[in-house]
């Protein structure tokens, strides 16, 4: 009988402890606006591979948990659909069809966050380091581009740390899109590939049925897309 009474006490005790513990933790599922970029598309067909680790990515530190997978998958889908003439979602690199010129596999290399307790600046900060693996249509590696992006909140007090971390993560993801749009064609290995492709297409004889010599025009612009610089 005494044991039973003891058990009756344990249930609310555990429930209260669980409630207290969850009250101290911050769980964020990142949500935000990720528009398609306003840029002249790079005239190539690209295949995108989002593996499970990327799609379900969750960052955890102490009592903080940030579910980033869904948001980053959406951001990159929108980004690549505007950045390239054509973008296709692939299950794996091996699933690339012959008409695909490039295959891009984004991976999260590292994430760091800083809360007001860490930086004493009254801002929340998020850094994300991506490894953008780029392959050509044959599956040969072109580049492993380590791309970092950063987001922070304004100094004004926000309602909760969850909301602040979401805001900082959204800014970081948008920054990743900006970095990708302006920096992708400037990666030396990618730039080299684009130049080689343009030269190869120039060397190809014009189709016999074509009446106009304009068929190879778009490649001449490939190396200058998105080359805006800060000023």
């Amino acid at each position: 009988m005494a044991t039973k009474t003891h058990k009756n006490w344990l249930v609310p005790l555990f429930a209260a402890s669980a409630l207290l513990l969850s009250a101290c933790s911050t769980n964020v599922t990142v949500t935000g606006d990720y528009p398609s970029p306003l840029a002249k598309p790079i005239p190539y067909d690209v295949g995108i591979v989002f593996d499970d680790a990327f799609k379900d990515y969750v960052f955890t530190r102490d009592n903080i948990e940030i579910k980033l997978g869904d948001a980053q998958t959406r951001m990159y889908s929108n980004l690549f659909s505007g950045m390239f003439a054509n973008s296709t979602l692939l299950e794996s690199r091996e699933a690339a069809t012959p008409d695909i010129d490039l295959v891009i596999v984004p991976n999260v290399e590292e994430i760091q966050i800083a809360t007001p307790k860490d930086n004493r600046l009254k801002v929340y900060e998020v850094w994300i380091k991506y490894n953008m693996q780029v392959y050509d249509g044959d599956g040969s590696s072109i580049a492993d581009w380590l791309m970092t992006c950063y987001g922070k909140t304004p100094t004004a007090t926000l309602k909760s740390s969850a909301r602040s971390l979401n805001l900082a993560s959204v800014v970081a993801l948008r920054d990743a899109g900006a970095r990708m749009t302006t920096g992708f064609v400037r990666v030396p290995e990618v730039q080299g590939w684009l130049i080689r492709q343009a030269a190869r297409k120039r060397q190809q004889p014009a189709p016999a049925t074509s009446d106009t010599p304009a068929a190879s025009e778009p490649q001449t612009q490939t190396t200058v897309e998105g080359n805006h610089e800060r000023g």
């Binding site: 528009p35 970029p37 306003l38 948008r174 920054d175 900006a178 302006t182």
Partner: peptide, 9 residues
Amino acid sequence: LYPWFEPRT
């Protein structure tokens, strides 16, 4: 006008 008026650009 994304991404031309982001903090970076």
